[in-house]
């Protein structure tokens, strides 16, 4: 009897292993092996084709004083200014949409359309919309008497222009998550607060905001991870990295070093630094989140 059971278990084990085989093999081949390879390649001087000449930590020393790489890192983090702005706006939208008004489904759809749209197409559209003379943005500004700059050609305005576009594109996504979170807040909490005489702002601050905290955390973490890898809009809207490299992002810089200048070893070192930065920032966010939730409890 026991023998049959264990034979059945062994057969189940084999089936189960066969069922997870694909992702495990995929992980080993396309994630683990490339990571190990990247670590080694980052220690070499290599053009991608010829021999890999081992140079120790030279690449890592070099990138610390690489003005373009540091600039691109700075730009990448600068773009993240848009994250809190976008989240604030989408939370406001979600609160607004939690009311009983006509056309809510239509609004939800409209605000979500940019999210599903191809980023390449959107970047092309906004590149044209930011045209100094004939672009939609400056034409709209002209209606209120503002003479807009030539956005993408200006060292001052190019980065804000990209941030603005990113907010426009991402608004709907955060809004949907916030809306779902707000709708799952027990109605009784608001009613109790109302009985206690709390006004709208107080109810928002003491009920809504803490209740949507997990969503805020999720959005901040994923937006930072995604923002750290910003590439498409940079490469399409400012193909040469913008005026004086002012829009170049880290991934764009890495991509160019690797695939334009064949500095594969050096680019890999930069890619590893970027990966580590993302990991460290994410871990810091998780530990801050844990500490703050204790404070609330």
């Amino acid at each position: 009897m026991a023998g049959t059971a264990s034979r059945l278990h062994r057969s189940e084990n084999r089936w189960a292993l066969a069922f997870v085989a694909a992702p495990v093999i995929g992980y080993l081949l396309f994630t683990l092996y490339p990571v190990c390879f990247a670590v080694y390649a980052s220690l070499t001087n290599w053009n991608g084709l010829g021999v890999m000449r081992f140079v120790g930590l030279d690449n890592y020393v070099k990138l610390l004083s690489d003005a373009n790489f540091l600039e691109s890192l700075y730009n990448t983090f600068f773009y993240m200014i848009g994250i809190p702005i976008g989240l604030g706006m989408s939370l406001a939208l979600a609160v607004a949409m939690n009311r009983k008004i006509v056309g809510l489904t239509a609004f939800r759809t409209i605000y979500y359309v940019p999210v599903i749209s191809s980023l390449a197409a959107i970047a092309i559209l906004w590149q044209w919309a930011y045209n100094g003379d004939f672009g939609l943005v400056n034409q709209a500004l002209a209606l209120v008497g503002i003479d807009g700059p030539n956005w993408l050609a200006s060292t001052v305005w190019a980065k804000p222009a990209i941030i603005l576009m990113a907010i426009w594109k991402g608004l709907g996504y955060s809004m949907i998550l916030y809306l779902a979170a707000i709708q799952s807040v027990p109605r009784s909490l608001y009613e109790a607060a109302q009985l206690d005489g709390a006004n709208g702002w107080q109810r928002f601050r003491t009920i809504t905001l803490p209740m949507v905290r997990p969503v805020t955390f999720f959005l901040v973490v994923t937006n930072v991870i995604g923002g750290a890898q910003i590439f498409t809009e940079i490469n399409i809207m400012t193909p040469s990295g913008g005026p004086e490299y002012s829009t170049a992002s880290a991934v764009w810089h890495i991509w160019r070093q690797a695939f334009r200048y064949q500095q594969m070893g050096y680019a890999t070192a930069m890619a590893i630094v970027l990966g580590l930065l993302i990991l460290i920032i994410t871990l810091i966010q998780f530990s801050l989140n844990r500490r703050n939730s204790f404070a609330i409890d």
Partner: peptide, 25 residues
């Protein structure tokens, strides 16, 4: 196995793209 696979999320594509490109080329 599950946690191992999950570690893959933590590695951004830009870090993998150069080695993957070399593999496929």
């Amino acid at each position: 196995i599950f946690v191992g696979l999950l570690t893959g999320i933590m590695i951004p594509y830009p870090t993998l793209m150069i080695p993957q490109f070399v593999m496929f080329s």
